[in-house]
């Protein structure tokens, strides 16, 4: 009995949860659980199929290369707003950035004994 009480709620529920799923699959409503699980796996591929279908659909996107976009060409045209081209001076000012080393706070956290996955 005391061993059972030492098990955390999380551990307990993981086992209980598995038991519930198994019971449902074996019991009265097997399709409910499997359909829900399939739906979860499917959602990402459904959205992804939508993306690639749109890319290949000339009614939605009649051009498929960034360099062919007429508004992009206008932006980079000689004498245009970014007339010195991609990675040029104005691009550097407006469209590029720098990053911040944020590792010190993480080191402090690990020094406190906190275990992270990365």
């Amino acid at each position: 009995m005391s061993e059972q009480m030492n098990c955390t709620r999380r551990d307990f529920l993981k086992v209980a949860g598995a038991a519930v799923v198994v019971a449902a699959v074996a019991g009265a409503a097997p399709t409910l659980v499997t359909e829900a699980h399939a739906a979860e796996l499917d959602l990402v591929s459904q959205r992804q199929s939508g993306v690639y279908a749109a890319d290949a659909n000339p009614k939605l996107y009649n051009l498929r290369k960034s360099q062919d976009n007429p508004m992009v060409q206008k932006l980079y045209a000689k004498g245009g707003f970014l007339g010195d081209g991609p990675c040029g001076h104005v691009s550097h000012e407006l469209l590029h950035t720098h990053y911040v080393d944020r590792s010190a706070a993480l080191k402090a956290l690990k020094a406190k004994g906190i275990k992270l996955k990365a």
Binding site: D55, L63, R64, N69, M71
Partner: peptide
């Protein structure tokens, strides 16, 4: 305005 390369 955008191309297919952007939507992916």
């Amino acid at each position: 305005e955008a191309t297919g390369a952007a939507t992916i």
